[in-house]
């Protein structure tokens, strides 16, 4: 059934990585991305890679899950690699076929770029694999809190996001039901050309939209009945608290940043 799909790709667990405050993980992820972009040498890549491997080991996320997360992006990685391979010019020509010349520098950049994308994806995968969507929105809301002064509706945005997450499974289930009901009336969703297919979607989309609006209306009434009146004066069941492990993790992150900057300075 459709509703069995794991959404947001969150794998619940109790490891250190899981228990880290979502804010810590968000900051570390940003830091990690910065690291990847200032890392230029093999040595600095090695440092970043080591950091990632350690984190994955600590989180007990299986390699298989990470590989399956990378799979949909293989083509993107290949294209980036090939573009870099053919378009980078340098001094050490490796070979030339017809109008295409490949330089040693091209090979280097291609491999580094492919590596960079893979590391980038793996790092963000690790964040979503170990942090529930609700924790993520909570963390984001807290981190973006200062923006409230600039009249950015931070609370409203994060409430919208968590409600959207809450209703995804419900709407998927509903799609399933309506689809079956229309199939029972002879609808065919997978035959014909693109226009016929689009037209065949109407009996699915119209009821789905109407139902979504009805749900939104009822939910708003229910939320108001439960004293919802925006973010003002709101407390939280689960207060995010920075623990020792969070400070340690952040310190490690900053040290790595310093290390990579040093390596860059030293030209290593």
């Amino acid at each position: 059934m459709l509703k069995d799909i794991t959404l947001g790709q969150f794998f619940p667990g109790t490891t250190v990585v899981h228990r880290l405050d979502p804010r810590t993980k968000l900051i570390l992820t940003v830091l990690y991305i910065v690291l990847l972009f200032i890392a230029v040498s093999w040595a600095s890549y090695g440092v970043v890679f080591l950091f990632l491997v350690c984190s994955i080991c600590l989180s007990r996320i299986r390699l298989k899950a990470i590989l399956s997360g990378l799979k949909p992006l293989v083509i993107l990685i290949l294209i980036t690699g090939l573009l870099n391979l053919f378009y980078t010019r340098g001094e050490h020509l490796l070979f030339r076929v017809w109008k295409i010349s490949v330089y040693w520098e091209g090979v280097r950049t291609a491999v580094l770029m492919a590596l960079r994308i893979m590391l980038l994806i793996t790092g963000t995968l690790l964040l979503t694999y170990t942090t529930s969507p609700i924790q993520l929105t909570d963390g984001l809301e807290k981190l973006l809190n200062p923006l409230k002064k600039l009249r950015v509706p931070v609370h409203e945005l994060s409430m919208m996001m968590s409600i959207a997450l809450r209703f995804i499974p419900t709407l998927i289930e509903e799609t399933d039901k309506i689809m079956n009901a229309q199939k029972a009336r002879g609808a065919e969703f997978d035959t014909g050309n693109i226009f016929q297919k689009a037209k065949a979607m109407l009996p699915l989309l119209v009821p789905l939209f109407i139902s979504a609006f009805r749900r939104a209306d009822e939910l708003a009434t229910a939320m108001e009945s439960r004293c919802y009146h925006g973010g003002e004066g709101r407390t939280k069941l689960k207060v995010l608290r920075m623990e020792r492990r969070d400070w340690i993790a952040l310190t490690v992150g900053v040290l790595l940043l310093v290390l990579v900057i040093l390596l860059r300075r030293l030209g290593l």
Binding site: E174, K177, A181, Q182, A184, R185, L202, P203, P207
Partner: peptide, 13 residues
């Protein structure tokens, strides 16, 4: 074989 699902009014479009 005609099948009327639960809450069939949700299929009206």
């Amino acid at each position: 074989v005609g099948l009327v699902f639960q809450y069939p009014e949700y299929q009206l479009f």
